[in-house]
C-alpha cells in the first residue's frame, strides 16, 4: 500500500505481508498482512489465543517468521535479530507488565536505552523526561521494580520502552488487570506518546477503548485476519461487534 503525501511516494512505517509463524509444528499465524503508517495508532483485536502476542513477537524477531515479509521503514527486518530490530526503532511493552523485578526503577529504565550504547550517566536527561511523564516513578527511583503496584509497573514498562526512542511502539494488552481509573490513565498516556510522533501498534482486549483511540484496527481470529477497517467502522459494525468483540 502506497500513500501519496505531498507528491512524494511514502512507504508505510511497518508493513507485514503474508506472515506465517509456527510454534514447533503448530501453525499459529496464517498469512497475516497488515501495515502501520507513520504516526498512527493501529489496534489489533481478537480473543484469547488468536495469535496477537505471536504477531508482536514475530515483528520484534523474538519468534522467527516461517515465511512472509516484515518491512520496517523500507527495510526487511524478518531476518534480523531482536537486538537489530530494536536498534532499527521498534520497542515493546510486553504482555503482563514484565519488568525486571529485582532491578531498581532507574535500572529498568536504563536497560530500555541499552541499544543506544550510551554511558549510564549520559542517560539521565532522558530518564528525567520519563519521570516527567510518570512522576510516581521518580519517587520510587531507587526501589526494586517488583515492589511497585501493578499500575506503576505498567508505567515502568512503558517508560522502559520509550527509553529506546522508538519510531514504532508495540503494546501488548497494556490495560490488562488494571482498575478502570488506571485504564483511562494508560489510554491517555498512549495518546500522549502518539502525539509526540510515535506510531503505536496496540493489542487490546478492551476493544471499545482501543477502537476509540485508534485510526484503524484489525481483527485476528485463530491466526487469520478476519476484519480490517477504521476505528469507527469496526466500532459500528454489528457483525464485528457480535462475532469478535464479544458484545
Amino acid at each position: 500500500m502506497v500513500i501519496k503525501n505531498n507528491g512524494i511516494k511514502k512507504l508505510p512505517l511497518l508493513e507485514i505481508n503474508n506472515l506465517i509463524t509456527y510454534y514447533g509444528l503448530i501453525q499459529i499465524l496464517k498469512e497475516i498482512s497488515l501495515r502501520v503508517e507513520e504516526g498512527e495508532i493501529v489496534c489489533l483485536l481478537g480473543s484469547n489465543g488468536a495469535g496477537k502476542s505471536t504477531t508482536m513477537k514475530s515483528i520484534l524477531g523474538l519468534v522467527r517468521a516461517h515465511s512472509g515479509e516484515i518491512n520496517f521503514r523500507g527495510q526487511r527486518i524478518d531476518n534480523l535479530s531482536a537486538a537489530q530490530i530494536v536498534a532499527a526503532g521498534i520497542a515493546t511493552v510486553p504482555e503482563s507488565r514484565r519488568i525486571f523485578p529485582r532491578l531498581s526503577v532507574e535500572e529498568n529504565l536504563q536497560i530500555g536505552a541499552y541499544i543506544h550504547k550510551a554511558s549510564l550517566p549520559s542517560l539521565q536527561p532522558q530518564i528525567e523526561q520519563i519521570y516527567n511523564l510518570f512522576p510516581r516513578l521518580k519517587e520510587r527511583r531507587r526501589q526494586a521494580g517488583g515492589t511497585l503496584s501493578g499500575g506503576e509497573q505498567q508505567m515502568l514498562a512503558i517508560g522502559r520502552a520509550l527509553m529506546a526512542k522508538p519510531k514504532l511502539l508495540l503494546m501488548d494488552e497494556p490495560s490488562m488487570g488494571l482498575s478502570p481509573a488506571l485504564v483511562d490513565k494508560i489510554f491517555e498516556i498512549i495518546q500522549q506518546i502518539n502525539r509526540s510522533g510515535t506510531a503505536i501498534l496496540l493489542v487490546e482486549q478492551n476493544a471499545h477503548m482501543a477502537l476509540s483511540i485508534a485510526r484503524r484496527g484489525y481483527v485476528l481470529q485463530t491466526g487469520s485476519l478476519v476484519a480490517h477497517g477504521t476505528g469507527d467502522e469496526l466500532l459500528h459494525s454489528e457483525e464485528i461487534r457480535s462475532a469478535y468483540l464479544g458484545e
Binding site: L62, A82, A83, T92, P94, Y114, R160
Partner: peptide, 11 residues
C-alpha cells in the same frame, strides 16, 4: 532476571 524481556529490550 528475565532473559525473555532482556531480549525484547535488544539485549
Amino acid at each position: 532476571e528475565d532473559p525473555g524481556v532482556a531480549a525484547s529490550c535488544g539485549i
